[in-house]
Deep mutational scan, measured.
Amino acid sequence: TGEEYIAVGDSTAQQVGDLTFKKGEILLVIEKKPDGWWIAKDAKGNEGLVPRTYLEPYS
């Protein structure tokens, strides 16, 4: 379980453990880390770190 967020920009994984996503994708945020990198899952079930500045709450 988690909260749904929509990507407001494209982000390409810079290192192992990062999640690549495109603008408009809905991501499920699993954990919000205080350093600004959140753990999220995409629609295909891929999981990784995403920069919170690229996400907005999805409603």
Rank of each mutant, 00 (worst) to 15 (best):
E31G: 08
G45H: 03
G2S: 09
Y58F: 10
E4M: 15
L49E: 06
G24D: 05
A13G: 14
G2D: 07
G24H: 04
I26F: 05
E56W: 08
V50A: 05
I30V: 08
L49G: 06
I6A: 04
K22R: 10
W38F: 05
T53I: 13
E47H: 09
N46C: 08
A40V: 14
G17T: 07
G2H: 11
N46V: 07
E3L: 09
E4S: 12
L27C: 02
K23L: 06
T20G: 08
G36C: 04
L28D: 02
K44L: 12
I6N: 02
Q14D: 10
P51A: 11
K41F: 07
E31M: 12
D10V: 03
K23D: 03
T12F: 12
A7M: 05
K22M: 08
L19Y: 02
K23E: 06
Q15D: 10
W38Q: 00
K33T: 09
A40G: 03
E4K: 14
A43E: 09
L19G: 01
Y5C: 04
E56V: 13
Q15C: 14
P51D: 15
L27H: 00
I26V: 09
V8L: 13
G9W: 14
P34W: 08
K23I: 08
G45T: 02
T53G: 12
G48I: 04
A13W: 13
G36K: 03
D10P: 06
V29G: 00
A7E: 01
K41V: 14
D10I: 03
P51I: 09
K32V: 04
G2Y: 14
I30A: 02
K32G: 02
E56L: 11
Y5E: 00
T12Q: 12
A43V: 09
G24L: 03
D42T: 05
E31F: 13
V50I: 07
I26Y: 04
Q15V: 11
E31N: 10
V8R: 08
S59L: 13
K44H: 14
K33G: 11
E31P: 00
P34V: 09
I39Y: 12
S11A: 10
T12R: 10
D10L: 02
E56S: 08
V50L: 04
G45P: 00
L28P: 00
T12S: 10
T1Y: 13
R52T: 11
I30H: 03
I39G: 02
T20Y: 08
G17R: 05
V50S: 02
K41S: 06
E4D: 06
V29W: 00
P57A: 08
D35V: 02
L49V: 08
T12K: 12
Q14L: 14
G48D: 02
L55Q: 01
P34D: 13
G2V: 09
S59A: 12
I26W: 05
D18T: 15
D42C: 03
Y58C: 06
E3D: 09
G17K: 06
L27P: 00
V50E: 02
G9S: 15
I30S: 04
V29M: 02
L19F: 05
K33N: 11
S11F: 15
K23M: 07
G17S: 07
A13R: 15
E25K: 00
K23W: 05
E3C: 11
E47F: 13
N46D: 07
G24V: 01
S11V: 15
Q14M: 13
P51N: 15
S11R: 15
A13H: 10
V16A: 12
K33H: 11
Q15Y: 10
L28C: 10
Q14E: 12
N46Q: 09
R52A: 15
P57L: 10
D35S: 07
D10G: 06
G45E: 03
I30K: 05
A13N: 11
E31R: 08
D18H: 15
L19V: 03
F21V: 06
G2R: 09
E31W: 11
A13K: 07
T1R: 12
P51R: 12
L28H: 08
G36I: 04
E3M: 10
E25L: 02
A7H: 01
Q15N: 14
G24I: 02
D10Y: 05
T1I: 14
S11G: 07
D18L: 15
P57V: 08
I30P: 00
G48A: 03
A13E: 09
E31S: 11
T1K: 12
Q14F: 12
E31Q: 11
G36W: 03
T12P: 13
K44F: 14
G45W: 02
V16E: 13
K41N: 04
G2N: 09
L49C: 08
I39W: 13
G2A: 11
T53M: 11
S11D: 03
V16W: 10
S11I: 14
L49W: 11
N46E: 07
L28A: 04
E47K: 11
T20Q: 11
T20I: 10
T53A: 14
G36N: 05
A13T: 11
K33L: 11
L27N: 00
W37I: 13
K33Q: 08
G24T: 02
E4C: 13
P51S: 13
Y58M: 10
D42R: 00
I6F: 05
V50R: 00
V16Q: 11
K22H: 08
K41Y: 07
D10Q: 05
K33W: 07
L27T: 00
P34Y: 09
K44W: 14
G36R: 02
K33C: 14
N46M: 07
E4N: 09
K33A: 08
Q15W: 11
L28Q: 07
K44V: 09
I26Q: 03
E25I: 03
N46W: 04
F21L: 04
K23R: 10
G24F: 04
P51Q: 14
T53W: 15
L19K: 01
Q15M: 12
W38D: 01
E3A: 08
G24M: 03
D10S: 09
A40I: 06
K41L: 11
K22G: 05
A43R: 10
L27M: 05
D18G: 14
A7I: 03
T1H: 12
I26L: 08
D42W: 02
G48V: 04
L28I: 13
E25G: 03
D42Q: 01
T1G: 12
Y54H: 13
A40L: 04
D10E: 07
K44A: 12
V16Y: 10
K44C: 14
V29P: 00
P57N: 05
G45D: 04
